[in-house]
Design a protein around this nucleic acid. Structure first.
Lengths: 334, 334
DNA sequence: CTGTTAGCGCCTTCAC
DNA sequence: GTGAAGGCGCTAACAG
């Protein structure tokens, strides 16, 4: 049994209230008393119970990190990890804890998202990897619980979002390729249940058209953000359009899949076919040739989400959308 | 304000006590009453407050995941992610929550590890990536708080561990290479502040000697588990020992670094130099050539750690060490 | 400045 | 079978 506020009060010869006040920095405590209490608390190694405090304040200072489809063997999550760091770092600075919530876990699917948060009295939630057609999406957005979603541009009275400027990012990529002289540029996109896919497609299209290059739907393949999907997309596009000299992928993982295909097909990168990815996961620098890509500021996305959420929870900020600018990172594949 | 047990009691026309009993499945409640209470609780969408419950039961059903050096831009953590899934999955099944604790975050370094856990009244802790010389190590092991450490073979009254059989794993790797006809096999190890490094070195050595190949210290390079370290180690070993036909790396990341060097040096893999890694992170399958490696059952390690910890907490199990057998995964680099 | 009183929401003896 | 009372550890009026 840890030492409680009573123990401190007793040892200091004052009431519990006074201890509480002294420790919480209230002004209305005699200076000598305060010092004594502080000293004694220190000596006794007193740690106030977050549980008891939560019960009375009705705040847990704990927020949930809700990850859809957090599961075994998914390398998708390499992308997510930096975001998690950003969230965790900023939350820790702000004095909040983070609890991991996985929507795929059986037990947690039994009760609704909101019920889960209610039971734990979470103060807020950050949600990632939600598909546009996931029923949870509405639940999150409409819920009275403050929330921030990553990469889905929806704002409600209690829900904000953080994302990258994906239109801009895609434009960066395509402009870069055009600048290198490419005119027939393929695009391997991710599935349409991710909001970012639509934006990246738009950026691709607009970049082409603003350079007088007509948009050709047949040069676009919709994959699924996996290595294998990227490989297949690249293969299909190249078979159908041998004249293609560059491919833009909506994620690094898909780009790496594309590189696999190109290597096996004996196509020289970037000489015969340039490749640009999206995300700048750590992998991009490790594969060879090193991948030219669009860097998303993932750590900052996480930190921003954390900040925004806490701002909302503490009533200092209104829910809003925040969009971070990605940047072009030129390496060896272009 | 969420609905409380009072609201349910009032609506059902019974006392709080009865509601509590009915909901917690006690036998001493009239069947009709129980049904009515259950129905009303359902209608009111009542969720018992985990906070209030924790205060009275003195258990939070929350365990901490303590990660040393969880920080921006570290790709080391690719290894950790699967372990985290394993932990999270099993804990969710067992009805426990997981909270993320980062020892590097400034605010959390201010107070000791134990204080942090005490404040939150955590029921237990799983610790990963602790260096042997980290002062936290003793604090964890000696602490009264139940804990499980990953990859450090220490057992105390309150602390168990989970690890892979690293000696065996290294033997698998080296035997495999010997079986392929290699006789001069280099070893790029990780830093000596990881317990696993010592075991992998021992396995390397014993495998050689049991095949009548003398152990030569000059064929061992101590790197640091990073890509760059692996690259450098590989380069140095090859320069000093051109006759070397295979290198075993104590991690996949280092092996990938080694592959970088070999490619640049124009050395054909595996014809002129075979490579075997350790871990089987997802990357191993993605790089090219695909990496032969020793698979650690990371998900199982996490699940095992979770299980063991809960067992200890609930008094069903004594702290112990559990060692999982890794396995050889032959791909293209050997 | 300090102490007394009331809970926060729930579980658990102990009576009835 | 059911209820009343007490308390988990802490904060927050309200008095003095």
């Amino acid at each position: 049994m840890p030492v409680t506020i009573r123990d401190v009060a007793r040892a200091a010869g004052v009431s519990i209230t006074t201890v509480s006040r002294a420790l919480n920095g209230h002004k209305d405590v005699g200076e000598k008393t305060r010092q004594r209490i502080l000293r004694i608390a220190e000596e006794l190694n007193y740690r106030p119970s977050a549980v008891a405090r939560s019960l009375v304040t009705q705040k847990t200072r704990t927020i949930g990190f809700l990850v859809s489809d957090l599961s075994k063997g998914r390398i998708w999550h390499y992308f997510m990890l930096q975001i998690l760091y950003g969230i965790q770092d900023r939350l820790a600075e702000l004095g909040y804890d983070l609890i991991l919530v996985n929507t795929t876990t059986t037990r947690q699917r039994e009760i609704s998202y909101l019920d889960f948060c209610t039971e734990r009295r979470l103060d807020g939630v950050i949600v990632i990897n939600l598909r546009l057609d996931d029923p949870y999406l509405h639940e999150v957005v409409e819920s009275p619980l403050p929330s921030v979603v990553i990469d889905i541009p929806l704002v409600s009275a209690t829900c904000g979002y953080v994302t990258s400027d994906n239109v801009y990012g895609a434009k960066l990529a395509v402009r870069h390729l055009i600048g290198k002289g490419h005119r027939t540029i393929g695009f391997v996109n991710g599935h349409s249940q991710a909001a970012v896919s639509h934006d990246r497609l738009r950026g691709y299209r607009e970049a082409l058209e603003s350079h007088g290059i007509p948009f050709r739907p047949e040069l676009v393949y919709e994959a699924d953000y996996t290595v294998e999907g990227g490989r297949k997309g690249c293969e299909l596009l190249r078979t159908a359009h041998p004249e293609m000299t560059a491919v833009f992928f909506a994620s690094d993982l898909m780009a790496i899949g594309g590189l696999h295909h190109l290597r096996e097909a004996g196509v020289k990168v970037p000489e015969e076919c340039a490749v640009v990815g999206f995300d700048d996961i750590e992998l991009a620098e490790i594969v060879s040739p090193q991948l030219t890509t669009i860097r998303q500021k993932r750590y900052e996305m996480g930190a921003t989400a954390a900040e925004m959420l806490v701002g909302m929870m503490e009533g200092k900020t209104m829910p809003e959308g925040r969009t971070l600018l990605p940047e072009l990172v030129v390496r060896q594949t272009s």
